[in-house]
Structures are given as C-alpha cells and as structure tokens.
Simulated assay, not measured.
Amino acid sequence: MQGVVTRTEGNPTAGIVLMCVGVASLSANDALAKFLVSDYSPLQILFLRNVIALPFAILLTLKMGGAGALRSRRPAAHLVRGVLWIGATLLFFTSFIYLDLAEATALIFVAPLFITAISAAFLKERVGPRRWLAVCVGFVGVLIVIRPGASAFQPASMLPVLTAFLYALLMFSARWVDARESVWTMLLYLTGASAFLSAFIVPFVWVPVQPGDLWYFAAIALFGTAGMTMMTQAFRLAPAAIVAPMDYTAIVWATAFGWLIWAEVPDRAAFYGAGVIIASGLYVIWRERRVDLSQG
C-alpha cells in the first residue's frame, strides 16, 4: 500500500520477490520497535529511526533520481504528510505496549478499506455495492479481533485501527504533491519531515540511550528504509494487483516474531478476524483492478 508510483518496466517475479522481502524488513522494523518501546517513548524511537535513516535516504534519492530529486515544489504538502506519518507511527508503536505484534498487524490491514471509503466520501469516486460490501465485511473482521463488550476487549485495540485511518489519509495526501516529483523525493521528504517535526517534541520524552541499544536503533532505521525502498521498487516493476496482496504476508512474519521473541500466540478469534480482514482487503484490490481495466 504505497503512494503514487511510476511503472518503469515489467518484471512481475522481481516485483513479488522485492515486495515479500520488503514486507519482511518492515515486520522486523515493527518487532524492533516493540522490543524498544518498553524502555523508550514511541516518539523517541520514531525520531532516532528517521534521523539515522535520513542520510541514507538522501544518498538513495541522489542515486535513483539525481540532484533534482532533492528539491520539492510543494514542501508544505510534505510537512502535512509528515504530521500524518508521525501520528500513524506513534499510534502503531504505542499499540505494541498493550497488544501482541500479530494482533496489531492484523488490525492495520483495514487501511485499504478506509482508502475505499474515503475515496467515495471525499473524492466522490464511484464505489460499487460489492466493494462497499467488502468494506463492511472487513470491519466485521475488525470487530471479531477486538471483541467490543467481551472480557478480552482492550481499548488499545483501536490504536492500530486509527493507525490504518491515518495511513489511508497519508496515501491520499500524495495527490497534494506535485505530480512531477518522483517517489524517491516523496520518501526523502517523508523521512526528513518526520525527523524535523518530531525534533520539537522529543526533548520532553527523551531518556538517555543505552550504548548497547544503539545497534537496535541502527537496525530499525536499516530495516525501515530498506523495506520502504524494496516495496516502492516492487510497485514500479509489477502491477499493483500482483504485488499488493504480498503485503499480507506481514501477518506471517508478525506471528513468527511474536512467538519467537515474546512467546505470543494469537487466539482463535484473532486468527478468524485477521482472515476476514485480509480476504476483504484482497477483494477490494481485485475489484479496483477490474474497474481500472474496464475504464482503461
């Protein structure tokens, strides 16, 4: 689920491989964040991740887009996107304090459903009854996972859902960026804006970083940047309908990391709910692809 990207050449196999490896990298990023959040504020983790990643993002942008890609024609749009990205990341990282990694990951998969709903409500895009039905079914899956009214319900379960909503807004905010700017410029400014904006708040939550934890912060920056880069390239090499479903392999990685590191085992309801959410998201992706083909 990336922003606006430009296809360069067709190579579906490479796109699928890059997407899968990118998803695995971002899942490792999330696992590291969950490990660190017990000792550091989510805001401090976000700030250090972006500060460490920023030089690599600059080098990557120079290599892929040239010096011109370092300039933006609409920097204000990137600042707004930075606010959305900070909000989404803080909510998601905070959910790790209370939720299993797999449960938080499953709930964030409602983002495609939010994107569909927002496109109909605010952009006046036509959404057919079958896609609306898929959206409703997906939110039923959310209810299965969070179980409101049950003894197992945790208010923190709403944090990944709110994360998904902000992520959907972030995807739509790509329309505010000048169409001539490359995806590498967007990634660079998203990293830079997040580092810049969070710098004003992080002193209020800062705690000294233990020397042994520096490696974890370096790793989270590495996995986060590598994951976003590989997923971006995947969408450039193959149609979204082919690579986007690979995003759901994150639930496998989240379950594996949760079990190996924290001995977390999602209960049956969480698995059922995740299955409903994923099935609904896949159907929305498939239907949007069908609509695009019919209109193309």
Score class of each variant (00 low, 15 high):
139 F>V: 00
85 W>M: 09
177 V>A: 11
190 L>Q: 15
188 L>N: 09
262 W>D: 08
290 R>M: 14
284 V>E: 04
270 A>C: 07
103 E>M: 10
61 T>G: 10
51 V>C: 11
142 V>R: 01
259 W>C: 07
211 P>E: 04
202 V>W: 07
96 F>R: 06
34 K>V: 12
125 E>G: 06
46 L>W: 07
50 N>S: 13
140 V>F: 13
44 Q>A: 15
156 A>K: 01
148 P>I: 00
61 T>A: 12
145 V>L: 07
253 W>C: 13
122 F>S: 11
264 E>C: 01
212 G>I: 05
45 I>K: 08
214 L>Q: 09
99 L>K: 04
112 P>D: 00
280 S>G: 11
263 A>T: 08
204 F>I: 04
74 R>G: 00
215 W>M: 14
225 T>G: 15
225 T>V: 12
65 G>P: 07
184 W>Q: 07
87 G>V: 14
225 T>R: 10
124 K>E: 12
209 V>S: 12
150 A>S: 15
73 R>W: 01
234 A>G: 05
149 G>F: 12
86 I>G: 13
260 L>W: 07
152 A>E: 12
222 L>W: 10
216 Y>C: 02
93 F>V: 14
203 P>K: 03
183 V>Q: 10
32 L>F: 13
265 V>Q: 12
254 A>Y: 02
241 A>L: 05
272 Y>W: 11
257 F>T: 03
240 A>Q: 10
50 N>L: 09
108 I>W: 10
12 P>K: 03
166 L>K: 11
178 D>H: 15
242 I>W: 08
162 L>Y: 11
165 F>G: 00
176 W>G: 05
134 A>V: 13
76 A>R: 14
248 Y>Q: 12
220 I>V: 13
292 D>S: 15
79 L>F: 13
273 G>L: 02
123 L>T: 05
78 H>K: 09
72 S>C: 10
56 F>C: 14
110 V>I: 15
67 A>L: 11
35 F>H: 15
295 Q>N: 09
126 R>D: 03
100 D>C: 00
202 V>T: 14
194 S>N: 04
144 I>Q: 01
255 T>I: 04
52 I>M: 06
257 F>Q: 03
223 F>W: 03
97 I>C: 02
108 I>D: 06
249 T>C: 09
156 A>C: 07
234 A>D: 04
284 V>Q: 06
53 A>Y: 03
125 E>A: 08
205 V>I: 01
49 R>W: 10
5 V>D: 03
198 S>Q: 14
128 G>P: 08
292 D>Q: 15
18 L>D: 05
45 I>H: 06
142 V>G: 07
241 A>F: 08
217 F>Y: 11
132 W>A: 04
213 D>K: 11
106 A>E: 11
189 Y>M: 13
187 L>I: 14
128 G>V: 06
269 A>T: 00
255 T>S: 15
10 G>N: 13
